[in-house]
């Protein structure tokens, strides 16, 4: 209690009240549990270092990623070129640094779009009734039966070349998965006892949705957002590897691996190994993040 009439007491009280809100408490608890988990901590550190590389790419890269130096072609790793140089004399290290920026942007953008649309569709299907549910889910079944890579290639070709082709291809292919998960989460929560209680008290449908159903149903889907980031990186680099989407000289990790394959210069192992390692590490981090979130948000495991 602040009896001295301190000017700060008002905001302090507000902060205190904020801290006691159920969702803030739950969120801060989740964050604490996540960071205490060794796997979670490692994944966050990896992601942060990638973000740092992406943000400061211009300062970290010793050379321009698109500078062609034909005198320095296909050099193995050395102190001057840490990860060697490629067929056109690009410095592989500098290319990787800029490619990380591009791939992170791609993944976050595509998954955020796909997640938003997918979850909206899933909530709509799960909450509005049997007819709309059937209609939406049958459409999603069709999308799910499509082989993901072929579907993504087709979309990317329709959209055209470049960044947005991949963003749209990856996000569209991720929609059915997200909508299925959101729908099943809604179906489970909808039948909880406390929701029935709210209905019996005469709460409106919208009130129940936003106050009681959504908060409980959304948290398990966050896991799949993290896992989706990992598959988005794999899919978008796979698309670039096939030559759709990002075109050289724009550095992209998958497209970089394609180059030695295309020119049959596989003896230049460094052109394959290093970009791949940077893909693997970030995908592992996203998968670890998903795993940890699953453990941490599972209320039944929380004591």
């Amino acid at each position: 209690m602040d009896v001295s009439g301190n000017i700060n007491s008002q905001p302090k009280k507000k902060l205190q009240r904020m801290k006691n809100l159920p969702w803030v408490r739950s969120l801060s608890k989740t964050a604490t549990l996540f960071l205490r988990n060794k796997t979670g901590l490692v994944s966050i550190i990896v992601l942060l270092s990638y973000v740092v590389i992406a943000v400061f790419a211009g300062y970290i890269a010793p050379y321009s990623p698109t500078a062609i130096d034909l005198a320095q072609r296909q050099l193995p790793p050395s102190l001057k070129h840490l990860f060697g140089t490629d067929y056109f004399g690009h410095d592989v290290f500098s290319q990787i640094v800029f490619a990380i920026r591009l791939d992170l942007e791609l993944a976050f953008l595509a998954v955020t779009i796909g997640y938003t649309i997918g979850v909206l569709a899933g909530v709509f299907a799960g909450y509005t009734g049997k007819f709309t549910d059937n209609a939406v889910m049958r459409v999603m079944d069709v999308f799910l039966a499509f082989p993901v890579l072929i579907f993504a290639v087709a979309i990317a070709i329709v959209v055209g070349e470049g960044f947005w082709a991949i963003v749209i291809a990856v996000s569209v292919t991720s929609i059915p998965g997200f909508s299925r998960i959101a729908r099943s989460a809604i179906l489970v929560t909808k039948n909880e006892l406390y929701v029935t209680a709210a209905i019996s008290q005469g709460a409106s449908k919208a009130h129940i949705l936003f106050r009681h159903v959504l908060p409980a149903a959304i948290s398990p889907t966050i896991v799949f957002y993290a896992l989706g980031l990992g598959s988005a990186i794999l899919l978008s680099s796979g698309l670039s590897f096939l030559g759709v989407g990002i075109q050289p000289p724009t550095p992209e990790l998958g497209a970089m691996i394609y180059q030695p394959f295309f020119y049959s210069e596989l003896t230049d192992w460094w052109l394959v190994v290093f970009p791949g390692i940077f893909i693997v590490v970030i995908v592992i981090a996203f998968n670890m993040m998903g795993d940890t979130l699953r453990e941490v948000t599972d209320v039944t495991l929380r004591r």
């Binding site: 794999l234 590897f241 691996i257 596989l266 192992w269 394959v272 190994v273 693997v280 995908v283």
Partner: peptide, 17 residues
């Protein structure tokens, strides 16, 4: 985790190399 996180084309090329 490695198994599900490695791009298949990368594994293939490494195997070939």
């Amino acid at each position: 985790l490695l198994g599900i996180s490695m791009p298949v084309y990368w594994i293939d090329l490494i195997l070939i190399i």
